[in-house]
Simulated assay, not measured.
Amino acid sequence: MSELTISSERLTAFAAHLRAEERSAGTIENYLRHIRAFAVWLDGSPVTKETAAAWKEHLLTQDYAPATVNAMLAALNGLFHFLGWDGCRVKFLRVQRRLFRDAGRELTRPEYERLMETARSRGQERLALLMETICATGIRVSEVQYITMEAAKRGRTDIFLKGKIRTILLPEKLCRKLLKYAQKHKTASGEIFLTRSGRSLSRRQIWAEMKQLCRYAGVEPGKVFPHNFRHLFATIFYRACKDIVRLADVLGHSSIETTRIYLTTSGAEHAQQLNRLGLIL
């Protein structure tokens, strides 16, 4: 049997397969990045069950979170299945669901407000409105493209992602801000959040602008990334309505188990709950 190798042709075919499966651009980018990292680590060695397992062991020495390791393995297993190399697939790490979040990764409402205030004071109007839009609607960063002039006028937007369509309502105050911003930048139709050259904002650019803002806002960079604004929305939404099924629909989750992850309390909150039990006499 010929040696199994990861070639550019195979990666191109796999990327086309992922697009045909209607995977998001972000997912495809992440999959390819993880696979290329594995290919570099192989350093010319063929792909085997043993080398894939050794890669898994290597990842465990690199201080990655278990969920990150599993995401990297998912990319690899996906490629192996596509190529018919199922014998090379490796098992995921078994991760027990955590009872509480790491406080070092939790974005609080005061920190969110400080980020907003800092962005506005620095004249970063687009970034401030973008953060506000994600946090007020719970959309993914890949869904920012659906915030259009037409959506702001209707007060809602239909998002098509992962083979599903869901409707997101936009708060009236947010719509007014979006329309005012669009008018100021002479956007008559289509996407509202654009670069100076009129192109869609990339995930990488949004991340970079948020990270840079941290230095001036005094917020830990590890807390500031688009998905954490979505987490903050989920937390505040659930506290207001106590309806996890409705929240799952708003977030676009197929499983309530996924939504439960968003609602995990911080370590400090968990400790307070334990203290209120009054079982230490």
Rank of each mutant, 00 (worst) to 15 (best):
I139S: 03
L76E: 02
R230A: 00
S2T: 15
G84H: 06
T264I: 09
T133D: 11
A182L: 07
G104M: 12
S24A: 12
R246G: 05
I165E: 08
K177D: 11
R215C: 01
Y238F: 13
R196V: 15
I159T: 01
L263S: 03
L170A: 01
L115P: 10
S24K: 06
G278N: 14
R203L: 15
A53Y: 13
L59H: 08
M116C: 00
G163H: 10
T61F: 04
T68D: 06
P66W: 14
L213S: 00
G138N: 08
L194F: 06
G252F: 01
A67R: 13
G87R: 07
A74P: 01
L170Q: 02
V141L: 05
T235E: 08
V47R: 06
L179R: 03
I6S: 03
F193P: 09
Q273H: 11
Q272K: 06
T235G: 00
V141P: 04
W207S: 04
P110K: 10
S255T: 02
T48Q: 09
L251I: 02
T235P: 01
F100P: 10
K184Y: 05
A39V: 10
Y146N: 11
F237D: 15
E191A: 15
T27K: 07
T157Y: 01
R105D: 10
L247I: 02
R89G: 03
A103L: 15
F82I: 12
A71C: 07
I280A: 14
I28T: 03
R109Y: 08
R246W: 01
T5I: 15
I280N: 11
I35K: 12
G104N: 14
R276N: 09
